[in-house]
């Protein structure tokens, strides 16, 4: 299986309230294991997934902040974050648990158009 496609995983949902954020990470890791060209986009409440300092002991749910830190080891280095969504939530790149590329919606939209496969969660 030598085909390499551009996969983008679009995250627009907050973590823990629903399972989608966790599952999205699982899929990205598998796609990376298949040597695909992976990127992740975070907009709307999806930017909350990257907020640092998750403490999930109190809700007895496995936290996954560490997995974002491990993405680099799987060569998933393209993390795109929508500037407008951050600002609307009173966040900046410094509040996030990993280094990301903050960009405008127009730039993000252009990147979406360049993909082969867009999976949204």
């Amino acid at each position: 299986m030598s085909t390499i496609k551009k996969f983008m995983f679009v995250n627009r949902k907050a973590p823990y309230g629903t399972i989608y954020a966790l599952e999205s990470l699982e899929v990205v890791l598998i796609a990376a294991a298949f040597d695909q060209d992976c990127s992740m986009a975070f907009l709307d409440d999806g930017v909350y997934q990257l907020k640092k300092g998750h403490q999930t002991k109190g809700i007895e749910v496995k936290g996954f902040e560490k997995t974002f830190g491990a993405l680099e080891d799987y060569d998933v280095e393209k993390l795109y974050v929508d500037q407008e969504s951050l600002a609307a939530r009173g966040l900046t790149a410094e509040d996030l648990c990993v280094p990301v590329e903050v960009m405008s919606r127009a730039e993000l939209g252009k990147l979406m158009d360049e993909q082969d496969v867009v999976l949204s969660f």
Partner: peptide, 8 residues
């Protein structure tokens, strides 16, 4: 709303 603001 987000789609309209994002996509070209």
């Amino acid at each position: 709303d987000t789609l309209l603001d994002t996509s070209p």
